[in-house]
C-alpha cells in the first residue's frame, strides 16, 4: 500500500466517523435557540452558554448514536496534530472576538466611538471572525460544507447594517440549513450503519 493510499484510508475513516450529522445538528439547534433568545430579547445573557450545550450535545450524540453504530477510534499522530492546531486557532479566533467585543463596548461607553462609526465598524469587525470560526470547523472536521457557512456568515454580518438584518435573523439563516443538513445526514447515517448490538469483544 502506497503512502497516499494509506492517507486516503485514514481520511475515509475520519469522514465516515463524522458522517453522523452530529456537528451540523447540534450547531443548527444551538443557532436556532440563540436566534429565539435574541428575538425574544428576554434573556440575552443566556446566549453565551449555548456553545457549552452544543459541545456537550455533540459528545452525548457521539456516545449514544455514533459509537454503537460505527465504533470508536483514536486518530493517528498527524490527524491529532491537525485537530489540535485547528482547536488552538478556533480558540484564538473566539478569544479575539471576545476581546474585540470587550474593547469595542468599553471604547463606545467611554465615548470614543460615535454611534454612526459604531454602525459602520461593527460588521467589519465581526464578519471575518465569524467566517474564520466556521472555516476552522470545516478544517478540523474535514467538512467542506462549513466553508459555505463561513462565507454565508461573513456576508450576512457585513450586510447586517446596510440591509438591517437583525442578529437573530442571521442566526436563523445559518441555523436552519445546518439543522436540515444534520437531519438528512443523521437519517442517512442510521440507514447505512444499523446498530448491530455488538458488545465489547
Amino acid at each position: 500500500m502506497k503512502q497516499d493510499e494509506l492517507a486516503q484510508l485514514e481520511q475515509e475513516a475520519f469522514r465516515a466517523y463524522n458522517s453522523d450529522g452530529a456537528v451540523e445538528l447540534m450547531l443548527g439547534v444551538g443557532f436556532l435557540l440563540m436566534s429565539l433568545i435574541l428575538w425574544d430579547e428576554a434573556s440575552t445573557g443566556f446566549v453565551g452558554t449555548i456553545p457549552v450545550f452544543i459541545i456537550l450535545g455533540i459528545r452525548a450524540y457521539k456516545r449514544k448514536i455514533t459509537h454503537p453504530r460505527i465504533g470508536y477510534a483514536k486518530w493517528g499522530e498527524e490527524r491529532q496534530r491537525k485537530i489540535r492546531r485547528g482547536k488552538i486557532w478556533l480558540m484564538i479566533i473566539l478569544l479575539t472576538m471576545a476581546a474585540f467585543v470587550f474593547l469595542f463596548f468599553a471604547l463606545d461607553k467611554a465615548g470614543f466611538i460615535g454611534e454612526q462609526m459604531s454602525d459602520i465598524l461593527l460588521p467589519y469587525l465581526f464578519a471575518p471572525i465569524i467566517g474564520l470560526a466556521f472555516c476552522m470547523i470545516a478544517f478540523i472536521r474535514s467538512m467542506p460544507h462549513f466553508y459555505i457557512f463561513g462565507a454565508l456568515g461573513f456576508l450576512l454580518t457585513i450586510l447586517n447594517r446596510p440591509w438591517h438584518i437583525h442578529l437573530w435573523l442571521i442566526l436563523l439563516l445559518l441555523g436552519s440549513p445546518s439543522l436540515v443538513i444534520g437531519i438528512v445526514r443523521l437519517i442517512r447515517f442510521l440507514r447505512n450503519h444499523p446498530n448491530l448490538g455488538v458488545q465489547e469483544v
Binding site: 460505527i70 465504533g71 477510534a73 448491530l196
Partner: peptide, 18 residues
C-alpha cells in the same frame, strides 16, 4: 493492519464497520 497503522487505536465495532 493498514487501518491500525494509520490510526492510533480502534475498537471492535469500528474495525467491523470499516
Amino acid at each position: 493492519m493498514s487501518l491500525l497503522y494509520v490510526l492510533e487505536s480502534a475498537d471492535f465495532v469500528f474495525l467491523m464497520d470499516r
